[in-house]
């Protein structure tokens, strides 16, 4: 997993609440066999509308999504996180996230930042007035910074540490390499193997 320390990029204002994972990535995309290539499925239904905010050229290349409350509700599909990341988002800001979505996002290195709704509104106004305005999400200082906005956010210490270090579950487990190797060395010889090596 890529470490997340601090990130600065342009932001997309998504003035919608209750964005469920079916909207983020529709079910028919789940037949895919990769974790990549979900970017075209991201908000697929909404993107058919040329006026949808993601379709505006001024927002091309944005890496921070600023959404309304209750983002990521519904189905637990991990694909929703993959789709946001494939599209290029590094962080999502909202006043409230669905639990499972938040768990999935942190597991995959997508930072979900909870800010008060007033701050979200301020970010919406800023980025609507000036689509090139940059937003900084600083995980080290736990702050979101933009012109006229300086807001602290909270994140549980364990999740923050894992993001700062870029540790996914697998990397964390591999820190126990010695313990795994010891265990392997002491396994009884009668345990079966699928291959003769």
């Amino acid at each position: 997993m890529e470490a997340f320390t601090t990130h600065t990029g342009r932001a997309v204002p998504l003035r919608r609440s209750n964005v469920d994972t079916d909207q983020i990535i529709p079910a028919h995309w789940l037949k895919k066999v990769t974790r990549d290539g979900f970017e075209d499925g991201l908000f697929e239904a909404w993107r058919k509308d040329p006026d949808f905010v993601l379709n505006r050229s001024a927002h091309a290349g944005a890496t921070v999504l600023v959404a309304g409350p209750d983002f990521g509700t519904g189905s637990s599909r991990e694909h929703a996180v993959w789709a946001l990341q494939n599209y290029g988002f590094r962080a999502v800001v909202s006043s409230r996230f669905a639990d499972i979505f938040r768990g999935n996002s942190l597991k995959n290195g997508l930072l979900t930042v909870v800010l008060p709704q007033e701050t979200v509104e301020a970010l919406w106004r800023l980025t609507e007035d000036d689509p090139t305005a940059e937003v900084t999400v600083d995980l080290v200082a736990r702050k979101v910074l933009a012109t006229g906005v300086e807001a602290d956010f909270a994140l549980d210490e364990n999740a923050r540490w894992r993001l700062l270090e870029g540790l996914d579950d697998i990397s964390l487990t591999l820190k126990n390499e010695a313990a795994i190797a010891d265990f392997e060395a002491s396994r009884p010889a009668f345990r079966p193997r699928t291959l003769t090596v």
Binding site: T34, R35, I170, I180, R193, T194, V197
Partner: peptide, 30 residues
């Protein structure tokens, strides 16, 4: 520790894809 890992076509593709992206191998093909 896991003694036996069974795989089939439906739930494994993204897992292998993840290994590839991280440059990891299957630890115990046996």
């Amino acid at each position: 520790f896991i003694d036996l890992h069974l795989l089939h076509e439906v739930t494994s593709p993204q897992a292998f894809d993840g290994l590839r992206k991280a440059g990891r191998a299957v630890r115990r093909t046996d």
